[in-house]
Design a protein around this nucleic acid. Structure first.
Lengths: 356, 356
DNA sequence: GCCGGTAAGTAACGCGAGTTACCTACAGCA
DNA sequence: TGCTGTAGGTAACTCGCGTTACTTACCGGC
């Protein structure tokens, strides 16, 4: 650390731009030799002595490779691009984290480009196109598209020029590979947990019934109940707006509808925000969680789930893992693996806290 | 849109890499002419006719400039780099959004590099150094450092090679310009709001008293009280862990300590998570918000503030604005403005909701 | 004493653009 | 007729680096 601040380096730094030629000159060798040493070429014959001389020169001058020039010469570019609305609506930020960490491990750089529109379907794809175009100008080797919530999307035409993977969304045209949460298994896990706790009369606070998350999770719930010889009582499924208020309203409806002995003893809330509202409805009625009513959520929105009192047991959306998997898939594709449109499902793990 | 999918383009797309030379050939001119037209050179004399011929060729071939080559030749790079722990701990994600939007407006690309350590002070700066180094390899024209919470940091040596601006943190060595929230004004605004609502006995749920946020906000509270001829009663200031549980404990302490008629009628919670806990404490005691006790928070963590019931009135940290301002400041610096170490304070606006 | 082989290294070309210096044709003018 | 100026362009160099083809020196074997 201290050594790197030698006078030579400081001087070099000041002049902005030490090149390989400078290093070569300093070491008294050709630029080619420097290139060979720095790229660790295997079948290059460079004596151990000149090798160290070159490395010393690199240190002394504070040489830093020029990524752009390297990309230009080698026709390859260490870069992946990700276009996403997540930065705008940071619900699924962990996708970016997972992708970036994985990219970092692979010595690749993730260029993050914003796509401002929540609804990518429709003609108004200006920004998304622009972002994709920008990334292609940087000559990214592959593209990722990430959405804040699980849905079908249309990607710009030009995305087909390089390997492309969709994360937390899928290609509405059915041509590109995608990584999505296994909503169905998640729903099963949630209801299984409630069943294991001895509940058999379970209320469900549903999302907009048409979105993939709702369809999958509910289907999973049905399967879990069937596994226990039970059936999903449609009367106990109440849809609401995907907010705390929506959850509150739905919970009130379920809780007030039945006499005490027929009231469900557990609520499966299809997202944590609705669970947050359900908490209020339950507490308002003088009921305790999980004593009188158990609650299980979905999504694992840390800020909510970990801070509610009691802390919310929930099923986590595997954002980080999906991000990492996206990059891995992309790496396989850029390495030459044929592009297929298959969808990888990622498990949604149960997070036990205190509400069941 | 439809027109861009002409057969020519499709063919060109397939072969991956239309260059200026291709365009020149297609238009029957020299590559230089193409370059002149594309860069809109003012004192280049190109007839209107060839100009359109060239533009047509660009369209027909689907030419896309190579950003790397351009950067190499022009010795300038449209890129800024931001190194941040925000991706890891997405509290202040809006900083990235603000910075990215602003960069986009300026036709610049923001390279986001992760810095994994929450505590940048200390010797263990491996990742941060690596991130900075990576960004400099990309030949970014300027660097931004963004922290999740307001504090002093040490940036790597090499950051001094290009213009650098700190966002939501400041240079512990006092050499770099920074953009931070005006905590003091924020504290003043919060307490002013309570005073305006008629409260004079105000409890304060404090953070770790040593961090800049706590110091500033508390100082602001003091000033607001002084403005009303009141003094801050140190007894009413209780510090706690910066979580919902911490807020709960602190609120309990304040609420239970006094007989009903001496109890504070309002709580100023120095962050929203603690306010969330305070809500529970208040409700548990059968008190209403804001009827019996008004609550005001700080930070405006949407997920909490907007979903608590009643919705939390709070003072917002201007993350997005700080991000944008950071990029603007950087633009000024790279344009040649001299680098000074001054700190720009950004206002923290009051967000009225329903808890006061 | 000559040949072949390897170790150690270098010259030179190309990647895709920006940029400078130059060149040509023609018009206008004395 | 000859000179100059300008509009309209082009050849050639450069950026920093990867890569291929080639050179040189030396060693061992027959």
């Amino acid at each position: 650390m201290a050594k790197t601040t030698t006078p030579q380096k400081a001087a070099a730094v000041r002049q902005r731009g030490v090149t390989m030629s400078d290093v070569a000159q300093h070491a008294g060798v050709s630029r080619t030799a420097v290139s060979f040493v720095l790229s660790n070429r295997e079948n290059a014959s460079i004596s151990e002595e000149t090798r160290t001389r070159i490395n010393d020169a690199v240190q002394a001058l504070g040489y830093r490779p020029n990524a752009g020039a390297r990309a230009l010469a080698s026709q390859r570019s260490d870069w992946y691009g990700i276009v996403t609305e997540i930065v705008t609506a940071p619900f699924a930020v962990d996708i970016i984290k997972g992708a970036q960490d994985q990219a970092w491990l692979d010595h690749r750089f993730l260029l993050i480009a914003p796509s401002d529109q929540a609804d990518a379907v429709g003609p108004n794809q200006g920004l998304e196109d622009a972002a994709t175009e920008k990334l292609l100008e940087q000559r990214v080797e592959g593209l990722l598209y990430a959405a804040t919530y699980h849905r079908g999307v249309h990607v710009p035409e030009s995305a087909h020029e390089v390997p492309t993977v969709l994360i937390n969304c899928f290609d509405a045209d059915g041509k590109l590979p995608s990584i999505v949460p296994d909503e169905r298994a998640g729903g099963r896990v949630a209801v299984d947990r409630l069943l294991r706790a001895g509940h058999s009369r379970i209320g469900v606070i549903n999302l907009d019934p048409d979105i993939p998350a709702a369809v999958g999770r509910l289907e999973g719930a049905r399967e879990a109940l069937a596994g226990a010889g039970l059936e999903l009582d449609q009367e106990l499924v109440v849809s609401g707006h995907a907010t705390a208020d929506g959850g509150y309203d739905a919970a009130c409806e379920i809780l007030d509808r039945y006499p005490k002995d027929q009231r469900p003893t557990a609520l499966f809330c299809l997202n944590d925000r609705m669970a947050m509202g359900a908490y209020d409805a339950i507490k308002e009625r003088g009921l305790t969680i999980p004593g009188d009513i158990a609650v299980i959520g979905f999504d694992n929105q840390e800020l909510i789930a970990a801070y509610l009192r009691p802390k919310l047991t929930t099923v986590a959306l595997p954002f980080e893992k999906m991000g990492a998997l996206g990059v891995q898939t992309l790496a396989a594709l850029t390495a030459g693996q044929p592009i297929t449109a298959d969808q990888q499902l990622v498990d949604c793990p149960l997070l036990e806290r205190s509400s069941v």
